[in-house]
């Protein structure tokens, strides 16, 4: 199980990145790509659970905050350049969609991994039974 997790995880991450980056040309996009990447990290968390990976993943909430703020910043850029919120800065070019895709994928990835880290760390002992 550990060997399989170690072998599969890079490919899952690569596939998530592919789904994210090629979301403008094929089925996919930021949300599925982020979830796929998060599933890879969760797989290696479940199979290994070593302290290094936990320490690496523990402070992933800042990436969550970064994703939300970056989405806001892209929208405000459209507001200042194009005159309306989320205006397409480069007309007829998918650059803005790719940027927003990557931001959304990072956000969903960080959020899901933070959720799972939180649920893993819990110790549930009802206080009334003590």
């Amino acid at each position: 199980m550990r060997t399989a997790g170690r072998a599969i995880t890079p490919f899952i991450l690569l596939y998530g990145a592919y789904v994210t980056l090629f979301g403008v040309l094929s089925p996919g996009g930021g949300f599925p790509g982020g979830i796929i990447m998060a599933s890879g990290v969760i797989l290696i968390l479940v199979t290994h659970g070593s302290d290094e990976i936990k320490a690496l993943v523990e402070n992933i909430e800042w990436l969550d905050t970064f994703g939300a703020l970056a989405f806001l910043v892209v929208g405000l850029t459209g507001l200042f350049i194009g005159g309306a919120y989320f205006t397409n800065i480069w007309p007829r070019s998918p650059a803005m969609l790719v940027i927003l895709d990557v931001v959304v994928a990072l956000k969903v990835f960080a959020g899901t991994v933070a959720l799972f880290v939180y649920f893993f760390k819990l110790e549930v002992i009802p206080s009334s039974t003590e």
Binding site: Y118, F119, L122, V124, I125, P126, S127, S128, T129
Partner: peptide
Amino acid sequence: GLAMILQLFKGYGS
């Protein structure tokens, strides 16, 4: 919702 249920379970034991 599941996180809220976990906290309720900690408090009530059910």
